[in-house]
Design a binder for these strands. Structure first.
Length: 591
DNA sequence: ATCCCACCGGCCCACTTAGA
DNA sequence: TCTAAGTGGGCCGGTGGGAT
């Protein structure tokens, strides 16, 4: 216990101070290599004759101070053990990313390779993790071990090894056998027909690249990371060694590597552009944009058909499309609420189109910024040039200087008597004949009448629309970016004012009123922003209508009702809460 | 020669994550 | 819900090099 408290050593991970700078991993490995069989006298082998590779823990000093519990022994991982660990790892893992129970298999394979050692599965997994993380082996060495492991498992399979292989392993082996070049990619002296062919393609490509000017190099396609392609690359790698060793400078190395890349493309049959980069022009419309635009076109066509059907067109072609728009068995085109359903579906599609439109704008903006940033990084001059507007800057002769001065001086020096003109009188006389609209007030009688049908039986239509407004009732809004809360109770869109109201009604406990109200405001913030962008609204206003279960009403309720143009009488404490139908009636009236 | 320090390596455990 | 894999972090041994 005391040891824990007085511990002064650093926490693992960080490398602190310079005193131990030389005591890194390398020095430790070097030491373990140098030690070989003979152990320094300060750390004698454990008396219980541990298996090879296990050494006693702690120096003589520490052992005296605190004999490790149960004579704990630590394993010394030699290079060959590390290699075997990796072999087992690669063999167990194969090239499948989602293989199951690989640790168990790896453990088994390791036990075959190092029968004298006893390590737990967790030990081994930790060790492999450590090896891979700390770059003990270089990439080339890792690749070699991987190849060895793969070919060894391949060999086992073909030789009918008795070691049981599970389904995945078998699948992997089968796949590997089917790949040309893999079986012969080992440096075992066997040169297959395929390898010879690859070598000749490689030489040809490198020769071609060497004599090719830099700007004429074709743009190479991105190659899928398939097993076959990787096998080709692996087979080419050892061939490159001699060329790279003979390379005199970086340019030559670059040429060799490009030639090799070209060869890989040719071997796997990847499509290469015929001429150099300059002639290759990318399509003006990007693929993502085309996809979205196609989707929008389809949706628009469907809206056309649905609208046509709603207005009475029963032609078979229209009917067929409409049926396809409403998949499912329990749906009839002649059911009573079909108009409502059509309206909803049409509105859905319109919302989707708006969202896709916004997505195109968003992506285009992003792409524009990306390209500008890239250009800024590579060639600032070109960027600023591209930002200039040639039709404004430097196009045609400038205005005469004397004229300009005279114009601006004349603007302020001569007093002008302003006159409204006769049109004002004309408009005023026309307006005089217009009768003013009666003020809209909701009386208790109106409310009573509305309540003849119990509010819980009232089933409003989710979408109502006229020329000036659109009203959603408990309807999700489709947005470009996913918004978690996209369904306030009521959404009212005033088309001309370009203003949207999001109304949410809540009945919390009385002590929660304030919190609830704030929560509502926060909850729909993102939706409000999305709607503003999607529908290009001037304003999107969130109006929470909160009444507590005990009838306590926040001060904001009156203001909010007034904002919505609803009579505030119903909001007094001794009145029952205005039901949804009343509220909606009022909303439609202000529409 | 011995101690001290800082760091790395090995081991273990608790916990999370992903997938069936 | 269970299992396997993966991860973070703590503990402590081992080590080299500087200080004493």
């Amino acid at each position: 216990m005391e040891k824990k408290i007085v511990r002064k050593g650093p926490l693992p991970g960080g490398r602190q101070g310079a005193s131990g700078a030389g005591a890194g991993r390398d020095s430790m490995r070097a030491a373990s290599r140098a030690r070989g069989v003979a152990r320094p006298p300060s750390s004698p082998p454990h008396p219980s004759s541990p298996p090879e590779g296990l050494v006693s823990a702690g120096s003589s000093r520490t052992q005296q101070a605190a004999p490790a519990a149960g004579g704990a022994r630590r394993m010394r991982w030699s290079k060959s053990m590390n290699e075997n660990a990796l072999r087992a790892y690669f063999r167990a893992k194969g090239e499948e990313t989602g293989c199951l129970a690989y640790r168990a298999r790896m453990h088994r394979f390791f036990a075959e390779l190092e029968p004298s050692l006893s390590v737990t599965e967790q030990n081994l997994a930790d060790r492999v993790r450590y090896i891979l993380r700390s770059n003990i082996f270089g990439d080339a060495e890792l690749e070699r071990l991987r190849r060895e492991a793969i070919s060894s498992s391949n060999g086992n399979a073909t030789a009918g090894n008795a070691a049981p292989l599970d389904a995945q392993q078998t699948a992997y082996v089968d796949a590997a056998v089917n790949i040309p070049f893999v079986a012969n990619s080992d440096d075992d002296g066997i040169v297959s027909h395929e390898l010879e062919k690859m070598r000749s393609i490689l030489e040809e490509s490198m020769l071609e690249t060497r004599s090719m000017p830099l700007e004429n190099r074709p743009r190479l396609p991105r190659i899928p990371l398939s097993k076959r392609n990787r096998a080709v690359v692996r087979a080419l790698n050892p061939m490159l060694v001699t060329y790279l060793e003979a390379s005199r400078d970086l340019c030559e190395t670059d040429s060799i590597l490009f030639g090799a890349e070209l060869a890989v493309c040719r071997i796997i049959g990847a499509k290469l552009p015929v001429a150099g980069r300059a002639t290759q022009k990318s399509s003006a419309i990007t693929a993502w944009r085309k996809r979205i635009e196609d989707r929008i076109a389809k949706a628009r066509a469907l809206i056309g058909r649905l609208t046509s059907f709603r207005s009475g067109n029963n032609r078979p072609r229209i009917m067929r499309t409409v049926r396809m728009a409403f998949p499912g068995t329990n749906f009839s085109l002649f059911q009573p609420d079909i108009t409502q359903k059509l309206t909803e579906r049409i509105d859905d599609l319109k919302q989707k189109i708006a969202a896709w439109g916004k997505r195109i704008r968003r992506f285009s903006e992003r792409s524009r910024r990306f390209n500008q940033n890239r250009l800024f990084q590579s060639d600032q001059k070109r960027l600023y040039k591209s930002l200039e507007r040639p039709e404004v800057c430097g196009a045609g002769p400038g205005p005469d200087q004397a004229d300009t001065v005279a114009f601006w001086r004349g603007l302020w020096s001569e007093p002008v008597n302003h006159s409204e003109g006769p049109w004002m009188e004309v408009v005023a006389s026309q307006s005089a004949s217009v009768t003013p609209m009666d003020p809209v007030t909701i009386t208790p009688e109106d409310v009573a009448e509305a309540e003849t049908e119990p509010y819980w039986k009232y089933n409003p239509s989710p979408v109502l629309e006229n020329d000036s407004a659109q009203l959603y009732w408990e309807r999700s809004v489709l947005t470009d970016r996913t918004v978690e809360h996209n369904r306030p109770d009521i959404i009212l869109v005033e088309k001309e004012e370009k203003r949207t109201w999001l109304v949410d009604i809540g009945i919390p406990n009385s002590h929660n009123v304030q919190k609830y109200s704030t929560e509502k405001l926060i909850k729909y913030q993102r939706l409000a922003e999305e709607i503003r962008q999607l529908r290009r609204q001037q304003k999107v206003l969130m109006v929470p209508l909160i009444l507590s279960t005990t009838g306590v009403v926040p001060k904001s309720l009156t203001d909010n009702l007034v904002k919505l143009g609803i009579s505030v009488r119903a909001a007094s404490c001794d009145q029952p809460m205005p039901n949804f139908k009343t509220l909606k009636g009022a909303l439609m009236q202000i529409v």
